[in-house]
Design a protein around this nucleic acid. Structure first.
Lengths: 148, 148
DNA sequence: TCATTTAGTTATCAAATGATAAGTATGGAG
DNA sequence: CTCCATACTTATCATTTGATAACTAAATGA
């Protein structure tokens, strides 16, 4: 196995992923949301209950900037704070009902676009795709050696 | 095959890809390059000979903004214009020797980080990864129904 | 108790990116 | 030749995002 070739395939692959996700998420009819704010909401949607520090780490935002964006999301009533009962410095963030509803709509719109990408795939191909996603998640991406 | 479930797996997957590529490319020691400029250079590196219009379409930049960024890259002597002999309105873009050298260094640095992600994988696993990348590229991403 | 660390906030400034209007030059259809 | 489309450019302004300093409050550890 040629590891250099694999690397080049990987680079081309990630570039494609970026382009496709951009296509899937562009022009979603959410009033007045910035790309980063969307990413934060997406992250919260996927991960349910998280702290600002986690958002900062995972989305590579500084704490002050994370704090600012979370404040904006709170002002728009899409997320809310939940205090940690043990450590009073910490708090958690979750979607409000309004936020959940809004993300549901967004995901429905994105899903429609996604389904179009796979509409001509047979069941066997879909199963192949599912396995491929799982393989990459477990064999590459979860190995992340995060260095600060 | 549950298509909705596949969609959610896909969303989580793309979020991970974004995080990992951010980790792989952050702090690369290229003097004075912005994220978008890097993306453009990466795109040129992968695709060799392209027009500004293609850059605009594929990286989702407006033509004026594309033009501005390409000018900056030209000013730094990383890319150069090649006139189209048939259509004198058009021109192509390619890396200069300086640009190639710089991208080589960047890719080397990124490759080192990438190899770390797969250092513990057996040959069979690497082959699995390669197949998974190919599967996703061909069965999902190349189906892109690009709508303007 | 007192210093230090952690979690998060506020304020401010700079840089990157997005959006739009208006321009040049060439190509192509009729 | 005229008109319109295409391929790009320049200029300008608004918004988003990044970076940094300085802060509060609670936890932790000696």
């Amino acid at each position: 196995m040629n590891k250099k070739e694999l690397f080049h395939q990987f680079v081309a692959f990630t570039a494609t992923v970026h382009q496709v996700t951009h296509d899937l998420t562009k022009n979603i009819k959410i009033d007045d949301i910035t790309p980063i704010q969307y990413k934060i909401l997406e992250y919260i949607t996927i991960n349910r209950l998280i702290t600002p520090t986690e958002v900062s780490d995972c989305l590579h935002l500084s704490m002050p900037n994370t704090s600012r964006e979370l404040r904006k999301l709170r002002e728009k009533n899409w997320i809310e704070k939940i205090n940690d009962t043990k450590d009073r410095r910490k708090h958690y963030i979750r979607l409000t009902e309004k936020g959940k509803h809004m993300m549901d709509e967004a995901f429905t719109c994105i899903e429609t676009r996604f389904q179009k990408l796979i509409e001509n795939s047979s069941n066997e191909e879909l199963e192949e795709i599912r396995k491929a996603l799982t393989t990459l998640q477990t064999k590459i991406f979860l190995n992340q050696s995060v260095e600060k």
